[in-house]
Design a protein around this nucleic acid. Structure first.
Length: 469
DNA sequence: CTATGGCACGGATT
DNA sequence: AATCCGTGCCATAG
């Protein structure tokens, strides 16, 4: 089936392959940039007029709306996977800011206030929206609140509690923790949200509350002392925090992917893929939208093609190049979409429990396995997966790579065993129990998993649940 | 002496 | 080719 795609226009060239590959590995922002660049300098390329589904107002990238056209005849377990142009509708009706002169194609980028507002607007009544909007316009570039909640309350003549209530809702939006007043508050907000879907090491919260200074300065020894644990354990906690939380909610959000400077382990972006329930009803099938942030359809301008055909020889060769580049790009884009669709179809089906029920239901999956099932080269999968983010039905945004994991299930089973334990089991005993569950790992590895989960060693575990000074 | 964590090596994964 | 992960060996703490 792939073949037919290729032969429809021109033979497979190395350029073709190369470009398909690079397109696959691009995130949406990068992709849009590329396309914009090409659109502006290549007259053969055009963006067709945008079309909406008359039914649900969804922007169409194809000719029919994938949702409305087949809501019922799909088997319930089948996810609906399609390429979507835009993700506006999923935020319900929000207050559009007056000055959005949005041009035709670059549309996946909002400023921070708008971005957040879109998320919470549906849950707020009109008046609260105004308050939220006011709050959001007073964020600094890191996503922190530059004014005090009291000022907000006074300004809008509402109670302080009400403001705090709204603030809490804002903090639960992506980027998680936005609207906090300081890094510490942001981390705590993220942590409590995270705690709803996955188990959190007890010490993490404490580390943030008491050892914030040490944390930010990477002083693990001091941190350990403050928490009453060894410095290596403190390091593990710190690692957990930097892996899963981001002290500066909005930082690197819109900037280029130059992550990994110091603290900011995670970069939040708008998702490349959105998974949601059909009509937001958890009983329905899952809808997987592969976001392609173009309004309208990218295609080779038929007029231009005709013009080339009619032109004299000189111009013909001149334009021919543009034409080739345009059709190459279009075709590679189709290829990219096609691959992503197949990929996500498999992933969602395989990891459905994880998507629906959270962390503990994640099944082990390697890229290689998937590459076999999809009959593509493993590097294709790697490229497609890397650097991409997915939004789950519960609004969390996670890297696509999270769906692939070799050992996470072993770690969760380990956690379960430890939670059920009557008296502290040492690592060797844990190893044997895991072996009974079919997980054959060495004693040393058990210790590592334990550390990764922030679980104390056996002799420190059970007796003390309270916190040492 | 026992239970753990550090370090470093090799094989698997990307 | 680069990186991640599981393991074995050894030092150390209790």
């Amino acid at each position: 089936m792939l073949q037919s795609h290729f032969h429809s226009l021109r033979p497979l060239t190395s350029a073709h392959l190369a470009q398909t590959m690079t397109l696959l590995s691009l995130t949406n922002e990068e992709l849009v940039q590329q396309i914009e660049a090409e659109l502006s300098k290549n007259p053969a390329l055009e963006l067709s007029e945008e079309r909406h589904c008359p039914n649900c107002h969804r922007l169409l990238s194809g000719t029919v709306c994938p949702i409305c056209s087949q809501p019922n005849n799909n088997p319930p377990e089948e996810p609906i996977v399609f390429v979507s142009s835009r993700d506006d509708y999923s935020y319900g009706d929000y207050i559009p800011s007056e000055d959005t002169p949005e041009d035709n194609y670059s549309c996946n980028i909002d400023d921070l206030p708008t971005f957040v507002l879109k998320q919470i607007a549906p849950e707020l009544n009109p008046h609260d929206r105004l308050v939220a909007a006011y709050i959001l316009t007073n964020l600094d570039e890191d996503g922190f609140l530059t004014i005090s909640p009291l000022e907000v309350a006074n300004y809008h003549h509402i109670s302080l509690n009400k403001v705090k209530e709204i603030l809490t809702q804002i903090q639960r939006c992506e980027p998680l923790g936005v609207g906090s007043s300081c890094p510490q508050e942001a981390l705590l907000a993220q942590l409590s949200f995270l705690a709803e879907t996955m188990p959190i090491p007890d010490l993490a919260r404490l580390a943030i509350e008491k050892g914030m200074d040490f944390l930010s300065r990477h002083q693990y020894h001091e941190l350990g002392r403050a928490l009453g644990v060894s410095s290596s354990l403190a390091k593990e906690i710190a690692a957990f925090i930097t892996d899963n939380l981001n002290p500066y909610p909005a930082r690197t959000h819109w900037g280029d992917p130059h992550q990994k400077s110091s603290d900011e382990g995670v970069t939040y972006r708008r998702p490349d893929i959105i998974i949601s329930y059909l009509n937001d009803n958890p009983k329905n099938n899952l809808v997987v939208e592969i976001i392609l942030p173009l309004r309208g359809t990218l295609r080779v301008n038929p007029m231009f093609r005709q013009a080339v055909h009619d032109a004299d020889d000189q111009k013909k060769s001149e334009w021919k190049e543009d034409l080739d580049r345009a059709s190459l790009l279009v075709k590679c884009l189709q290829q990219r979409n096609h691959t992503m669709k197949r990929l996500m179809n498999q992933v969602v089906r395989f990891q459905q429990d994880f998507i629906l029920h959270g962390e503990t239901h994640l099944k082990p999956l390697t890229r290689v396995e998937l590459s076999i099932r999809l009959d593509v080269h493993e590097s294709t999968i790697s490229r497609a997966v890397s650097e991409k983010t997915v939004q789950l039905p519960n609004r969390r945004i996670i890297p696509l790579s999270r769906f692939f994991s070799r050992n996470l299930n072993a770690r969760t089973i380990l956690k379960n065993i430890i939670e059920k334990e009557i008296q502290p089991l040492n690592d060797t005993e844990l190893m044997k129990l895991l072996a009974k569950e079919g997980i054959l790992i060495s004693r040393r590895t058990v210790a590592k998993y334990r550390a990764m989960e922030g679980i104390l060693p056996a002799h420190l575990r059970h007796p003390i649940t309270a916190v040492p000074l």
